[in-house]
Simulated scan of single mutants.
Amino acid sequence: MDSLTQIVLGAAVGEAVLGRKVGNKAMLYGAIAGTIPDLDSFAPLFTDTLTAIEIHRGFTHSIAFSLLFAPIFGWLIAKIERKSNVSWKDWSWLMFWGLLTHPLLDAHTTWGTQLFWPFDLRLAYKNIFVIDPLYTLPFLIFLILAMRSKRGSIKRRKYNNLGLIISSAYMLCTIGLKGITYYKFKNALEDQDISYLQLQTRPSPFNTIMWSANVELEDAYLIGDYSFLDSKPITFKSIPKNHYLVHSFKNENNLDRIIAISQGWYAISKRGEKLYFNDLRFGSLDPNADNPKFVFSYLLKQENGELIVEEVPRDPEEAKALLMELGNRMIGN
């Protein structure tokens, strides 16, 4: 999830764990704990594209990280806050839950997390977009109300608990919506007599009214969308896999790595003489185009006999146009 959401969640967890004893300082350190796992976002400054992607939401988003570093951070805070008369164990407990709830929340997004690192298992429930105002804003409002209430008061605890309960209830609701839309897509494929290998669904950006589906066929993928406000049947657009275009790279380790990152949901496109690896899990920037560009696309090129993978920068204008189109599409087809 986005940084603001993780800060709000961390602060609310900090308040729940230690708010009675230290007041707003519990929120402060909870917010810090909720931010720490995303320090892996700075990996591109120090390493290559593929390694940075593999690191993202890896070790820092694991149970192991929470267990190892919570006591260290707890000890540091206990040194800083000597006058609070709170033990390092209490601070460690606050940091543990702040660090752990971050990846637990991220696991609901499309990218997911390696919660059980070092095992190569990425949890991705795909039931909420990384930025969802309906999750964050009510949570933030209740957190602010709690922050402004007297330390240890019933009102303060009530506001904080309401924020946690309402945000969690909304999360459960998105899981239900995902289940409904999955069967909408499944039924549409059956009605159109389409045989498929796999079907995955995910919410569209910033909302849970409209959902998208990736459908794997033998030589292509179908991409479709469905809004709860739709009145017409679901239609699908075909994207050729074009995996044959990278057969010459089949012994390249970097190709295997980017395929593993995409979890096998990828299509190859060619523009001019350039080859692009497109991760289909996050959708396209221009879904109606014949040769669409994708949110996560990587240029494949050979340098000194080695396959180089470079992430293609996203055009802000294309993203703006996509959001406008998304707004119109949400209200029904």
Rank of each mutant, 00 (worst) to 15 (best):
50 L>C: 15
70 A>Q: 04
77 I>A: 05
110 T>Q: 01
118 P>S: 09
91 W>K: 03
59 F>Y: 12
51 T>Y: 08
120 D>C: 01
57 R>I: 12
105 L>E: 05
120 D>W: 00
83 K>R: 14
97 W>V: 12
91 W>E: 01
110 T>A: 14
126 K>E: 12
45 L>E: 01
99 L>K: 05
45 L>I: 10
85 N>Y: 13
65 F>A: 07
74 G>V: 07
80 I>Y: 04
129 F>Y: 04
109 T>R: 00
38 D>Y: 11
107 A>I: 00
56 H>Y: 06
47 T>I: 09
122 R>K: 10
95 M>R: 03
75 W>Y: 12
37 P>F: 11
57 R>K: 14
33 A>P: 15
45 L>Y: 08
73 F>H: 08
118 P>I: 02
57 R>A: 11
71 P>E: 07
66 S>N: 13
59 F>S: 06
63 I>M: 13
84 S>T: 10
31 A>W: 13
74 G>R: 13
30 G>L: 07
124 A>G: 06
107 A>M: 15
94 L>V: 03
105 L>A: 12
33 A>N: 14
125 Y>F: 15
47 T>P: 05
83 K>W: 08
122 R>C: 04
116 F>M: 10
60 T>W: 04
92 S>Y: 03
56 H>K: 07
65 F>L: 08
118 P>F: 02
47 T>Y: 03
44 P>D: 08
112 G>H: 03
107 A>D: 12
74 G>N: 07
56 H>W: 02
67 L>P: 12
89 K>D: 05
47 T>N: 09
115 L>A: 06
101 T>V: 09
52 A>I: 05
93 W>C: 12
125 Y>K: 01
79 K>F: 01
110 T>I: 15
36 I>F: 06
53 I>T: 06
31 A>T: 13
80 I>K: 11
98 G>E: 03
87 S>G: 14
54 E>C: 08
113 T>F: 03
115 L>V: 06
86 V>C: 00
120 D>P: 01
79 K>I: 02
35 T>E: 11
82 R>Q: 12
